[in-house]
């Protein structure tokens, strides 16, 4: 079955951004620029945090608006990205209203979660987990 990264309870999030740094390390680099997950405050630290990441839609809007076919459906849900085909138009990021498409400013390309679950290991508070995506559920 397809796995997806799921937000268990956003109220557990303390905003440490360890998941973002973890995601970036997948590329054998440090920092945040390539991270596919994003944490920001709801609007000031006093109100808590939100997690912005791809939720593996069954029928992903980002793929529908990609003019070059660079973003294509992953079996079971979510998308994969072919960097060579991407023309950096940004349609995908605009179309994803949940903010699940991040932008790699150095490459000028989108960066989208592949649901590998690497970040989960670095979330000390159980905000996110990798789970099986049941058939039929988006």
């Amino acid at each position: 079955m397809t796995k997806r990264l799921s937000v268990v309870d956003v109220d557990l999030c303390v905003g440490c951004q360890s998941c973002m740094f973890a995601c970036n390390r997948r590329f054998a680099e440090a920092g945040l620029g390539r991270s596919a997950i994003h944490i920001q405050s709801v609007g000031g630290f006093e109100r808590g945090f939100v997690v912005k990441v791809c939720r593996a839609c069954r029928d992903p809007p980002c793929a529908k608006v990609c003019p070059t076919g660079a973003i294509y459906k992953r079996a079971g849900g979510g998308v994969l990205l072919n960097y060579y085909k991407c023309n950096s138009c940004g349609n995908c990021a605009k179309e994803c209203i949940i903010g699940g498409v991040q932008w790699d400013t150095s490459l000028d390309k989108p960066t989208i979660c592949v649901h590998c679950g690497y970040c989960v290991k670095y979330c000390p508070y159980g905000v996110i987990r990798l789970e099986e995506l049941p058939p039929g559920e988006t």
Binding site: V14, G15, C16, Q17, S18, F21, F45, E46, P124
Partner: peptide, 16 residues
Amino acid sequence: GKRAACAHCPVSCIHI
């Protein structure tokens, strides 16, 4: 009411 963290700190010592 809430705990928060500085960026890149899993400790989250900020108590609110």
